[in-house]
């Protein structure tokens, strides 16, 4: 122990020294000379998946081509991440929470218009869904969406304005209400309004919400990504929370694509494309499944089928007519989400 402590002090000292002496040279230059460098700009809960996947892919790429590749990661709320790419964050690939955010980047001319057809399965190598995380023993007996609008239930979900996951949450609740009210939009709006009246904290991203629920102990139920729920149980909960699967949820399709303008500029199209395609290989699919994303490759999906509960899943295209329409109706300024918080709304 002593030795390592000294080592740390020494290293911090070295860093300090290095700063004062050498450099005004941006790190990227130093790093970017010999090896290919990819920047993957992603949303909140994929940190763990890509940490592992990047290492596996780098090894695979080195074996195949003999060249090294370094993959850098940036994570945050999906909206923030897309905004950064639009403003010039030079992402070679984006792996975001929903298609709308990539469409926004594409609208600014950075990505080909038909990006979603470039890779199989609408460019979604894995899918997920939204489930509930409740306190151990489910003391408030939360079984389904209809329980979330009861007056004494506190619901934790992030802000749909900034979080992709939160938009999926919102739409899942809306879809549930539609189905149980025979497609009555007004009833659905009332349902969702009552649900959000029970939300005491709106964090800006999925991660913030999980922290609020699990670590700060606020709320009775957290609506979150299935993968995030599993991960939170493993990493944080350790017997303090459990997963509840609602009767109906939404099929979440987090898409991936290369950013054309950037890869052409960096000359990284080949490795970037290979990187994303590797997500579709058996190896990539297994990793996704291990991190609780639902694989799309039939063989792997079958193998891990026991992990993922069967849920009735509605789709964004089927219920809401695609992301552009859903975004305009619900999340744009003045949309249904804003109206919830209007006085008397």
């Amino acid at each position: 122990m002593q030795g390592t402590e000294v080592g740390t002090v020494y290293r911090i000292g070295l860093v300090l020294l290095a700063c004062t002496t050498t450099n005004l040279i941006p790190l990227s230059r130093v790093m970017g000379q010999e090896r290919a460098v990819l920047l993957n700009v992603s949303y909140d809960p994929t940190r763990e998946l890509y940490q592992d996947f990047n290492a596996v892919f780098a090894e695979h790429w080195a074996n195949q081509t003999g060249t090294a590749v370094t993959i850098r990661q940036s994570h945050g709320g999906a909206g923030k991440q897309a905004r950064a790419v639009i403003d010039g964050l030079e992402a070679d690939v984006v792996t975001l929470a929903l298609a709308y955010d990539i469409d926004e980047i594409s609208r600014r001319g950075l990505i080909d218009k038909h990006w979603q057809t470039r890779l199989p399965n609408n460019s979604c190598p894995y899918t997920s869904t939204m489930v509930f995380l409740v306190r151990k023993g489910n003391p408030k007996a939360i079984k389904d969406w209809s329980d979330l609008i009861k007056p004494d239930i506190w619901v934790i979900t992030p802000n749909p304005k900034t979080s992709g996951g939160a938009r999926w949450n919102y739409l899942a609740a809306w879809g549930y209400a539609l189905k149980h009210n025979h497609g009555d939009e007004a009833k659905a709006r009332e349902f969702v309004t009552r649900l959000y009246k029970n939300v005491p904290v709106l964090d800006s991203g999925a991660r913030g919400s999980t922290t609020t629920f699990v670590h700060r102990g606020i709320g009775d139920v957290l609506i979150t990504w299935e993968n995030e729920a599993f991960l939170a149980m493993e990493k944080l909960g350790k017997g303090s929370v459990e997963i509840v699967v609602p009767s109906l949820s939404i099929l979440c399709e987090p898409p991936v694509t290369v950013v054309d303008k950037v890869v052409d500029k960096h000359g990284t199209r080949k490795v970037a494309t290979a990187y994303l395609e590797y997500l579709y290989t058996e190896q990539g699919q297994r990793l996704a499944a291990m991190y609780h994303y639902r694989p799309t490759m039939a063989a792997v999906a079958e193998e891990y089928a026991h992990k993922f509960p069967e849920i009735d899943l509605l789709t964004i295209d089927g219920v809401f007519g695609g992301w552009q329409q859903a975004q305009q109706a619900h999340f744009a300024d003045g949309g249904t989400f804003d109206q919830i918080y209007r006085p008397g709304g």
Binding site: L39, S74, R207, H215
Partner: peptide, 22 residues
């Protein structure tokens, strides 16, 4: 900043990132 790990994260931003990684 763009929040690129190990590249454009300052110490205060890194605090936030760690906080968000449980």
């Amino acid at each position: 900043s763009g929040h690129i790990r190990g590249l454009t994260n300052t110490v205060p931003l890194h605090v936030e990132i760690l906080y968000n990684e449980y």
